[in-house]
Amino acid sequence: MISSRTEGCTLTGALSVTSSVQDAITVIHGPDGCAHHNFSLLHALHFDNDQLILPSFLSSSLKEQEIIFGGEQALEDALAGALAGSPGAIFVLTSCVAAAIGDDVMAVCSEISGCPVVVIPSGGFLGGGFSDGVRSALIALSDLADGGDPNGTVTLVGEKNLEYEAEANYHEVRRLLGLLGVKVQLRFVRNIDVSAIAHLGSSSLNILREESLTDVGDVLEDRFGTPYLPSFPVGFEGTLTFLSQVADALNIGSREAVSSEMARQKEIIDQFSELRGRAINVCHPGGMPPLFLNELLELFDLQVKERGQNLPLPDPVPVGTSGISRMLSRWKRVLHA
């Protein structure tokens, strides 16, 4: 099988979540290479995004002896090392080889007291990829939440911790929610402490980063009764719909927020009027052009031609009005408009 750019290691996906809980330690039950490789990868990606983060990983350092005789003692030792750091929680992630030899990770972890321990099975050979690791980690970490009456706030679920525009996207969603007078109670999981996860059950609405997380949304809805929106807003029209959907879910009015956002969108459309009528070509993987692209083609009367100017389409797709605005700025530069 040829390696795909969209999928990868289950362990890496789970680590992209757990490493964003700042006062927790993640124990990787596997050979040192699994921990080192992921440490380097996450560190480098964060560094690319102008953040200096040294993920708090601890390896159980499995070697051949542990593979033959069982790695449970090595895991116990690693857990003792993790406990010594007085973390807010310990997340235990299994590598492929630990899963293959059948170490009873749950049993070892259930012996630990004095600190919450969450086990996230993440052996990639079981067939999952990066996004399965993300989903498993989010579902597992929700065990640290209490219930609670809905308090009118929103929780953001599954922000893409490794994407370049993660913070910009967060600020955009927060801005939009602000138009409705709604607050973000929790970013589940991005740059938070363990104690914050307790509030997961008390938001009135969960907003998933993207539709691939609907399994997580379903689990949280079952567990806490919290309804969810399946995705951050995409496109001009999508952003207005998003505002109405949030308002409907929270039983509040959206008229003012929608008209204020429409006005902002109109300003942006005017600001990029030089793009109007240009011949372009956009490469979008997957065949069908995304809806927000059709919207822009129409709004700016752009002509898609084989020999038109090639324009970059961001992946993941831009979030909210500001995301579209940033993309249009890039297009404008490319088109020298």
Binding site: E64, E66, I67, I68, F69, G70, I101
Partner: peptide
């Protein structure tokens, strides 16, 4: 030789 029954990987023990 190899691991106690129920843990580890006896097959890897033979290879080693």
């Amino acid at each position: 030789g190899g691991p106690e029954p129920g843990v580890g990987c006896a097959g890897r023990g033979i290879i080693a």
